[in-house]
């Protein structure tokens, strides 16, 4: 019995971690800043490739993962400066620009690095409960997802940067008039977003096949989570991930992966119909 219960928790934690880690970066870039970043998956891919590259050079996995997230963040700042900055007032054009970027990046990776890269293997470690065996690393992923949420809460709610960033996203002109360097705030926020995408790729790199289009497997889930969550990163994304993870876990366990995926997307359609502003609109109103 306890094995079954733990198994349920483990499956929930696994889906939850996947949703949070793939959506956290997008929650900032799309949820807060309003940039429809179609290249989100490519920042995830970047994190994964840098991790594998560094590990192959002999860097320990954890350090490689941190460096990979930082790399994706720095590239994000650069992309913001060169491309995204020009599209804040034209969100639909940002979709096209970042989509173009995504195509260029996947194709360039294919040409430069090749169609497949040898994996590095998941860190050893598994444990058994009842008749089941579990990979320890999947629980590490869950821990990382919780840490990412806590980190975001501290950055955006407890720091001076967070206050200014939220002010900038709500009313850039007013924030600027009050002396905030909005340009820099946007660049750093975008960089945090892409850095989190890179972290997602870095964390999942040991568990997956690396191909240039690997980001695509994360993109649907991440957009869905952010759209369901609504504009508030903290009050939206986390409950959205809990909600979707519950639905998907239950359906996966009883009816298999196909129904799990269909069920999750149906739930998304229903929520968008009932709550066009996402879950956070309700939660924030309640809070006030």
């Amino acid at each position: 019995m306890s094995a079954e219960l733990f198994s349920l928790f483990y499956q929930f934690a696994d889906v939850f971690a996947f949703l949070i880690l793939s959506a956290a970066g997008l929650a900032i870039v799309f949820g807060m800043m309003g940039v429809i970043n179609m290249a989100h998956g490519e920042f995830i891919m970047c994190g994964a490739y840098v991790t594998v590259g560094l590990v192959n050079l002999g860097v320990p996995l954890a350090i490689a993962q941190i460096l990979a997230a930082l790399t994706a963040g720095l590239i994000g700042v650069l992309v913001e400066f060169l491309v995204v900055r020009r599209f804040y007032k034209r969100p639909l054009d940002s979709l096209l620009a970042t989509w173009g970027l995504s195509l260029i990046v996947t194709q360039s990776m294919l040409l430069i690095v090749g169609s497949a890269v040898r994996g590095i293997g998941t860190p050893e470690g598994s444990f058994a409960i009842g008749g089941y065996t579990f990979s320890t690393y999947r629980l590490v992923l869950f821990g990382c997802a919780v840490a990412v949420l806590a980190g975001l809460y501290i950055i955006f709610m407890k720091t001076r940067f967070g206050v200014i960033a939220r002010a900038t996203m709500q009313n850039a002109a007013m924030a600027k008039a009050l002396g905030a360097r909005t340009g820099r705030i946007y660049a750093i926020s975008f960089g945090i977003g892409t850095g989190l995408a890179g972290l997602c790729g870095a964390l999942y790199a040991p568990t997956m096949t690396l191909i240039p289009t690997m980001g695509a497997t994360f993109v649907v889930e991440s957009f869905v989570t952010v759209v369901i969550g609504g504009a508030n990163v903290l009050l939206g994304t986390a409950p959205a991930a809990v909600f979707l993870a519950m639905i998907r876990m239950a359906l996966n366990a009883s009816y298999g992966q196909i129904i799990g995926q269909i069920g999750m997307l149906v739930a998304v359609i229903l929520i968008i119909r009932v709550l066009p502003e996402g879950l956070s609109s309700v939660l924030v109103r309640r809070g006030r």
């Binding site: 198994s7 499956q11 992966q257």
Partner: peptide
């Protein structure tokens, strides 16, 4: 178990297998 193309996460599948022995 039939899996949609593009799915990359298999924790549940692995447990379904262990359950079916």
């Amino acid at each position: 178990e039939f899996i949609p193309l593009g799915v990359s996460q298999f924790a549940q599948t692995i447990q379904n297998i262990q359950k079916a022995k």
